[in-house]
Simulated assay, not measured.
Amino acid sequence: MLRDVREWFDGAADGEIRALEEVPGIDPERLRELWCAEPELMLRLDGLHTAAQRAFERRTRVAVTEELLRALRAVAQGADVARLETAVALAGTRLEADTATAGARGLNTGLTCGIVISPVILLVVFALGEWVPGLFGAGLGCQERLALAGALVCFAGGAMGAVFSVIVRLRDPRQLIRDSRVGVGVGGVDGPGGAGPAVDPVQLSRALRQEGWYRVVVGWFLATALYLLVAGGILTLLTPPGSPAELCGPGPLSADGHGALVETWFFWGAIGFLAGLNERWARGLLRHPSAPGGEASGPGDGARRS
């Protein structure tokens, strides 16, 4: 049970990688003959066999490896080489899908982690806002509490906006691979000479998990920055329905005052959400380890280029 949970998050790529020459049941002399007769096909087979042993899902690893070896043994015993070509093409497609699954699962896990942690951070910040002034013999009044609450609502809206921005631009899980500059070549591979996937799916999953978390963090900062600009009077284009000074009177709030308070919270939540939607503008902040030359690349880059 624990292994299944761990593999769902981190993938099942573990253990020693075996080369074709180490697989039992295949005549080494016949294998050398196949290398001489079909060098390109054997190069792709070798790359896919290695990639299958580090596939993200265990069932993919087992199924693809067994199918490739079954086809290779059949050809080594005299079967038509077309069977091996078919097995290689199918293996490339399955490994491409496995890599897309790894990327999607990693990114979704990172985004979910950011959303789950957001309310925890909000509670901690609010508690510190109440506790820290007391250390200096001061306390928060009505206006200060409303300002802090508005900032936290805007903060939460930024996290939701960032997550929504990513989800909208990722209708196809394979977009993760294309936008991460891990293309799909012949037979679903893109290594040297089409010999195998250009990225380790386990590493891709971990990198995109971190990237999903970073995108939520970017949404936090953008929302907080926009809140400071609006609440500080620097950006006057947007005006809250009610200011803390208007809502904090000597007596209890009227019905209109309660309505203005609710509208103010919705206003700051919407401001944060709109700010979080623009997390893709933080270009260059999120860098993918598989991108050649260290160029910035993220799941949203393909949507921008198109």
Rank of each mutant, 00 (worst) to 15 (best):
116 V>M: 06
211 E>R: 04
178 R>C: 02
305 R>D: 12
209 R>H: 11
77 Q>W: 01
152 L>W: 03
263 E>I: 00
31 L>S: 07
168 V>I: 15
283 R>C: 08
153 V>Y: 03
64 V>W: 14
28 P>N: 11
296 A>L: 03
92 G>D: 13
180 S>P: 13
284 G>W: 09
85 E>Y: 06
182 V>W: 03
13 A>H: 08
201 P>C: 05
44 R>D: 14
297 S>G: 06
270 A>E: 10
105 R>F: 05
237 L>I: 10
272 G>R: 07
166 V>Y: 05
270 A>W: 07
118 S>T: 14
46 D>N: 14
204 L>N: 10
117 I>F: 05
201 P>T: 09
100 A>R: 03
261 L>W: 14
220 W>Q: 09
76 A>V: 03
240 P>V: 02
126 F>V: 04
259 G>A: 04
129 G>Y: 08
281 W>K: 11
169 R>T: 13
250 P>Y: 11
101 T>N: 03
81 V>C: 00
140 L>W: 12
58 R>E: 15
190 D>I: 01
43 L>N: 15
2 L>M: 05
77 Q>F: 00
80 D>P: 02
129 G>W: 06
250 P>G: 11
180 S>K: 08
151 A>S: 04
134 G>N: 02
242 G>Y: 14
284 G>Y: 07
211 E>T: 09
194 G>I: 06
124 V>K: 10
90 L>M: 07
4 D>E: 05
187 G>L: 01
27 D>T: 00
147 A>G: 04
240 P>H: 10
8 W>D: 13
264 T>F: 00
53 Q>A: 02
179 D>L: 00
299 P>D: 12
254 S>R: 11
294 G>T: 09
90 L>F: 09
33 E>A: 01
236 T>W: 06
214 Y>R: 10
139 G>P: 11
252 P>C: 00
6 R>V: 13
5 V>Q: 14
112 T>K: 07
95 L>W: 08
258 H>I: 05
124 V>D: 04
32 R>I: 01
138 A>T: 11
154 C>D: 12
113 C>G: 13
283 R>G: 08
36 C>W: 15
132 V>D: 02
219 G>M: 03
272 G>D: 10
104 A>G: 07
242 G>F: 10
208 L>H: 07
63 A>G: 01
270 A>R: 14
100 A>Y: 13
84 L>N: 04
8 W>C: 09
2 L>I: 03
131 W>D: 10
3 R>C: 06
82 A>E: 15
287 R>P: 10
161 G>E: 09
197 P>A: 01
54 R>D: 08
